[in-house]
Design a protein around this nucleic acid. Sequence first.
DNA 1: TTGCCTCGTTAACAAAAGATAATTTAGCAG
DNA 2: CTGCTAAATTATCTTTTGTTAACGAGGCAA
Lengths: 200, 200
Amino acid sequence: MATSIDTLQELLFDLAGVLPADTTPLFAMTTPVLLETNETYIREGENSRRLAFIEQGVIRAYTIKENGDEATLLLRWEGQFIASHDTIINRQPSRFIYRALEPVKLLQIDYDVLEEILKTHPEYEPLRNFFLMKMLAESLKMLESFVTQSPEERYRELLSERFDLVNRVPDKYIASMLGITPVSLSRIRKRMHTKGKTAT
Amino acid sequence: MATSIDTLQELLFDLAGVLPADTTPLFAMTTPVLLETNETYIREGENSRRLAFIEQGVIRAYTIKENGDEATLLLRWEGQFIASHDTIINRQPSRFIYRALEPVKLLQIDYDVLEEILKTHPEYEPLRNFFLMKMLAESLKMLESFVTQSPEERYRELLSERFDLVNRVPDKYIASMLGITPVSLSRIRKRMHTKGKTAT
DNA sequence: TTGCCTCGTTAACAAAAGATAATTTAGCAG
DNA sequence: CTGCTAAATTATCTTTTGTTAACGAGGCAA
């Protein structure tokens, strides 16, 4: 099993030539964090501006609606970044809760600390652009799926692209992320079993 | 009426202290662009990496689905940035079409040129972060609405937050952006007129 | 004015999703 | 193994949306 830093380095391979070879000053400020299953990483109302790279595990970002129901905004897994956009982008208390769905290994840095580093080491700026673009691309991809696809199509696509994830995460969270109820997802699964078993 | 540069400067006020007072080198590379109603700004399959600030008007980003229907991913209006995320983030030909819904005034820069400027003028980096974060925040806000709200609720919110926009843009594009059909939006409007007229 | 053409509305029906509750399944503690 | 609990499924009914088509209003060109 690779360490967090190894995996991240691997992921940053695309930035070779742009990013300095020596990333010591950067990683010196990072902290490894371990979360147990169901442990909360960021609480609602929290103001800490933590940014983390997920080395292992799945984190769910969700909010509690007025009616008391939970709504899952997104799931993040190994190889992705996780952060409270409310606190980092809008400097507001987090309206979302970030919780581990299974044991999680993180490599964490405080965004304010990162900004300090970037002041003295502007050569690491490509890194910030990298994860901002990565998160933007992921958000737009999800947005696109809501506009162009039906819930069933979104589920089929999720199955074909992230089969492992679907099997690791309880259906009710998958349903919520697709914008439907667990009951509805169950019916979609039934329809897929009986009729056209062909995937996307 | 303010010029593009004035409005953008105004918007960059938040960046005062971070961004150099002299933005001449930056704006020297920008080009004003005018689009007529229905004029296409970026075509499907296009590879140009244009990035633009919208001074005036509305631009619609949409794609053609397999069944031939159009799906509107997003609308962008004055004060926002517009760019093909396929070409800029993923370096792929644009899968979306960007078209003016009314006369549009843009302040345009090529992203590759911007990157060159940033190499020699790293002090402008906050600008890149600014628009990346702005676009990310907007995307996440839309994503959040899909997960937490019904089509009717999304429409009510759009009405209360962007009443001017709804009145400027044909309903069918609004519907598509909400993820529903024009017929369905018409029914929602009818329901709102008859029953509870209370907005969100 | 007349004749298109597009857009929004309405209607009628089918399909899908929401709400609620009962039932089954599965995982886990004892 | 038994019993508890949460998750998933199923059933029933209501509401909403999709689909298709018809209709009417408004804009625009001849």
